[in-house]
Design a protein around this nucleic acid. Structure first.
Lengths: 232, 232
DNA sequence: TATCAATCGGATTGCCCTATCCGGTTTCCG
DNA sequence: CGGAAACCGGATAGGGCAATCCGATTGATA
């Protein structure tokens, strides 16, 4: 219980020594770059290298990748939550809905890591999950309003947003290098299929719980395309 | 239906010694299992373990993962090509189109590896690419017919099929464990958005060449979700 | 059945990753 | 300004993967 080592920042409010704080910032900045480029699958070691700090420093400050992810994506999640707020402010809920979806998917396209964040849950990253829930609740309201205007199909469900993000992630992961705008067409197709009147019934949505479990998949890897490494 | 040997494509169809042939089959069977479960990102070593053969045997028979992939997925690609043929035989092109898409996406859902194969090109795997092209040409024809009936939107392009498969791969990779039927809803939404009349214009499709390059991404890894390892 | 080449597969090399240890260094505060 | 606590980061242990080497083994043929 007495930490001969240093890992004790649970309360987190503990002020860091100036050099430690400086390195913390460097690590976060590096992680921002690396995660954006490689997704959350990037290794802690590569982040440390990019930051120019020792591996030990990396793990001392962020013992878990989840903690690093939380520190890196909190502000991006704020932007995400803001986008929902903007959509709710739109006098035309359907218009707000479409603009929001395009914005959210654009955020995915601009940042591999964020694309992973939107389709993964991090039970221990409370700050992240708090924002996710805020956004979620806002979306439930927005969806309800959009349905009320008759522009959004009645059988649309909030879980469809998650599926949309997963699909978008697949497109982005496969095309972002060679055909970086492909996702726009895919999202446009989705939006047209969301529009009322529905052209037919849909298979049932996945259970909320099941989808939540799906979002728990250990560490994000981007399926969709074949890659170099993998455990057996 | 064919000579004793199995895949008679390469000129060097040198007959293998019986034990070598036996191991070859074991390796292919093992790869079928492993790729289906883990995608093409699975390691050669894990396939060798599953097959119960030495690593050296693995590499002697299949010096490249691409060669192994080719041996494993040729017959699955045949089924894929058959699905197109069936669709072309359908008196109602639109009906054939929808049935085909559902079938193709179901194949993806049933086999992680095949999902990768459908969104990746393997320049050196001629047998695979030959079938892919056959299927592609059939689809071009089917699309043309479906448009002629007025059920498929005019601005649908064959490249949209690739995007659909990429999106589907994203959904499957993220949900297959916990919510394995999610893709059905996504595919249904896509089909409704493909239906004429179009509800609005779409952003341009990616260039054919660009999409081809996108499908070249080195080795398949499944992006979409964060994963354990990754190079820096 | 004996012989020789083809084949087998364990061992090895080289590289990357996670995670922890620990001696040397820097910051902070009295 | 000086010392202790906090911090740094190289080194290391343990594990995975791709790829190659080579002595032991086995199949095919005379």
């Amino acid at each position: 219980m007495n930490p001969p080592s240093e890992h004790r920042d649970a309360p987190a409010d503990q002020r860091l020594r100036s050099d430690a704080e400086r390195n913390r910032e460097r690590i976060i900045a590096a992680a921002r770059t690396v995660f954006a480029r490689d997704g959350l699958g990037a290794s802690m070691a590569s982040v440390a290298r990019q930051a120019g700090v020792g591996i030990a420093t990396m793990f001392r400050r962020f013992p878990t990748k989840e903690e690093l992810v939380e520190a890196v994506f909190c502000d991006r999640m704020d932007a995400y939550v803001d986008a929902v707020a903007v959509a709710l402010d739109d006098p035309d809920p359907w218009h707000g809905f479409t603009v929001y979806i395009e914005a959210a998917c654009a955020m995915q396209a601009a940042d591999y890591g964020f694309a992973d964040v939107l389709t993964t849950t991090f039970p221990t990253a409370k700050a992240l999950e708090k924002r996710r829930n805020e956004a979620y609740e806002g979306m439930v309201e927005l969806i309800s309003r959009a349905k009320a205007t008759g522009r959004l199909r009645e059988d649309f469900e909030s879980s469809d947003l998650v599926l949309l993000h997963m699909a978008n992630a697949g497109v982005i992961n496969a095309t972002s290098d060679a055909a970086p705008d492909s996702w726009r067409r895919v999202v446009a197709l989705f939006l047209q299929s969301f529009e009322a009147p529905a052209r037919g019934p849909l298979p049932a949505s996945p259970e909320h719980d099941a989808l939540y479990k799906a979002m728990l998949r250990t560490t994000p890897t981007d399926p969709g395309a074949p890659e170099p490494n993998k455990s057996d």
